Simulated assay, not measured.
Amino acid sequence: MTKRDGKAEQAREEIEADLKDDPEVTWLARDIIAVVKKHRAAERKHATEVAARLEGARQVAGAEAADAEAAEHLTLAEAGRIRRAYKVAQTATPRLILDANSNGLNATEIARELDVSGSYVARFLRENGRQENPEGSQG
């Protein structure tokens, strides 16, 4: 709400006088007020959604900064262990995709867990004679 000044008070008094003189104006005034309230509610909802998206972006940026910080302090031995673990995970990925699909996960769900694209998983499933499970896991 804005602070009322003399002009706003005068306008309010004029509107009240018009409402008393012409009942049809009352319906119009109510409609205008309803539209303004609806618009304000939509603006608040939009602002909340934008704030949530911004917070999500900040979290991603923070995670990326943490990854960059960790990378700066990584030792040769740690990098070697991570690379060997990556190769093991890479070798296991086809089996993991097939197992997850057999357990009811769809390509999107599998891709999210493995941090790969959904199209990669869907193509892999097709090439290996599996049907995409559009429903995904139940729960």
Rank of each mutant, 00 (worst) to 15 (best):
K38F: 02
R95V: 06
D18M: 12
P134G: 08
T2R: 09
A8K: 05
N103G: 12
Y86F: 13
R44D: 08
L28E: 10
A100E: 01
S119Y: 03
A17R: 11
L19M: 12
I15C: 13
Q90M: 05
Q138W: 04
N128S: 05
E78L: 05
A65S: 12
H39Q: 15
R130K: 08
L105Y: 00
E43A: 12
A66C: 02
A65I: 09
D22S: 07
D99P: 00
V121C: 02
Y120E: 03
A70N: 08
E24N: 14
H46G: 08
A61D: 02
L28C: 09
N128L: 01
D115Y: 09
Q131F: 06
E113M: 14
A34T: 11
L98H: 04
E64V: 10
K87C: 06
K38E: 14
E64Y: 10
H39K: 11
S102V: 00
G56N: 15
E109G: 07
A65F: 13
T26D: 06
D18H: 05
L74G: 03
A85P: 04
A47H: 13
R44F: 06
E109K: 06
D67C: 03
L114Q: 05
T48G: 10
A63I: 12
G80M: 14
H46R: 11
Y120C: 01
R112V: 15
R95W: 13
T2N: 10
R4L: 11
D115I: 11
A71F: 11
A8S: 10
Q59Y: 07
A63W: 15
V116G: 04
Y86W: 15
T108S: 11
A77R: 03
P94A: 04
D67K: 10
G62D: 08
I32K: 10
A77Y: 12
R95L: 03
N106C: 08
A122M: 01
R83L: 09
A29N: 07
K20M: 11
R81T: 09
G129P: 01
F124H: 06
K38A: 12
L96T: 00
E49D: 14
G136V: 01
A34H: 01
A85C: 05
A89W: 15
E72S: 05
P134Y: 09
A77H: 08
G62W: 14
R95I: 07
Q10E: 15
G129N: 03
L98K: 02
N106G: 09
V88C: 02
E55Y: 05
G104E: 00
P23K: 06
E14R: 08
E78K: 05
R95M: 02
V25C: 07
Y120M: 00
A66V: 06
G56H: 06
Y86G: 06
K37A: 13
A107K: 00
I82P: 04
A77K: 07
Q90G: 01
K3P: 07
A29S: 15
I110D: 00
A89I: 05
E113F: 08
S137Q: 15
G56C: 09
A29I: 08
D21S: 07
G136K: 00
V121P: 01
G118T: 04
A42I: 05
K45G: 03
A57M: 12
R83A: 13
V25M: 14
E13Y: 04
